[in-house]
Write a protein that binds this DNA or RNA. Sequence first.
RNA 1: GUGGGCGUAGCUCAGCUGGUAGAGCGCCGCGUUGUGGUCGCGGAUGUCGCGGGUUCGAGUCCCGUCGCUCACCCCA
Length: 420
Amino acid sequence: MARPSFQAPKGVAEYLPPDSADFLAVRDGLSEPAIRAGYLYAEVPVFEDTTLFTRGVGESTDVVSKEMYTFDDRGGRSISLRPEGTVGVIRATIEHGLDRGQLPVKLWYSGPFFRAERPQQGRYRQFFQVGIEAIGSEDPALDAEVISVAYRGYQGLGLTQFRLDLTSLGDKNCRPQYRELLVAFLADLPLDDATRKRAALNPLRVLDDKRPEMSEMLKDAPLMKNHLCKECDDHFASVCQHLDDLKIAYTIAPKMVRGLDYYTRTTFEFVHPLLGAQSGIGGGGRYDGLMAELGGQDLSGIGFGLGIDRTLLAIRAEQGTFKTNHLDLFIVPMESEARRAALIVADSLRTAGLLVDLSFGDRGLKGAMKAADKSGAQFSLVIGESELASGALSLKEMSTGELIPATMENLSELLLARRT
RNA sequence: GUGGGCGUAGCUCAGCUGGUAGAGCGCCGCGUUGUGGUCGCGGAUGUCGCGGGUUCGAGUCCCGUCGCUCACCCCA
């Protein structure tokens, strides 16, 4: 057999049968709670003006500074493949004036995102997310709703072992003061060069260093959570209260830091313990200044991005299963005249809403029945000379072998009544 | 971007100290005339990731390269 001369680009995730069904189940399972909560779908481009991301996500972030796919298009414009979803949705909201109507604007989206990182299990250069954004309200109940939508998504897919980490990153009133405190604290520590550099760029990010000696050193570091202004503190307390009301379990994680600069106040992350190094299965938070930064009204928003790839890995790690929808009927035409009838029958049953496939090519009866078996169809139906002549059909229930008398006229009715 | 492991049929893998490839599963067919799953028999498919090198001879040794994987980093 000829070896394929092309390979997929490095680090991309592909989902093909039979795994692709699981991918769809996860995507739909994560988006369903958003739809039920009144979020409306937004389809936005996978590439944008590069400056949208440098402005929105933040130039100092790794995501922007070293992981973006950036290129010039034929008109000499600098374009980047989207590394995350929020700023594109915000841009579209501003551009199309969605925020001129009733607030909050509630949107959901799903699709591929791109980051040029070294691939690893659960970390791909093209990966998939389901996300939501709720724009234009600072109500802490909205924060809780956003978190609950993610939480119920994971739950609905059968996940039980994930953890929700939660904290508040403060706002423009209290964060700068806290930052100074932290910088002063870090200045007294014997940091290595790389860490000191990080500290200069974004001191908060030093806090979630995983190395044991670092967490020892940072044991007594000042925490944002203890230096929130009154408004932020009240807001956070209220978010927690709402989550308690909803019986959503969370862990306060005061050292959690996210990789995107726009987060303020409520910030959260879903972590799965069975996933190894890439354990984040989703995360998000509030972004106070983002919309104004991108040229819109000064409205706050909150949203999340949930990783479809990682959620799928997490479900597999928990030995979870998916419900699959099987074919209702597999038709086996005996000879070529019967194939015309078989295709007509298949077409009309499909129109009636049934899932129908049939055997193609010159397969013998035995081979075609084998295909019927492999297809997973609930029923099979042989169509040949005698069926065409008499109009008497016999529908076979594959799991039991039972033959059920049928006619062309009552076939769809029968199948609809008996489908499982 | 840094470091470790790996790369043999569609899949999972075996191939000792170098002598031009195997198993199981899967796939296709047959087991007498129009009904699958079990069983039996038969069959197809590999430039042993790719490119160089050493050697009379390399899947097996060396170098490079591509990809996967694990950790760091980062994060979904």
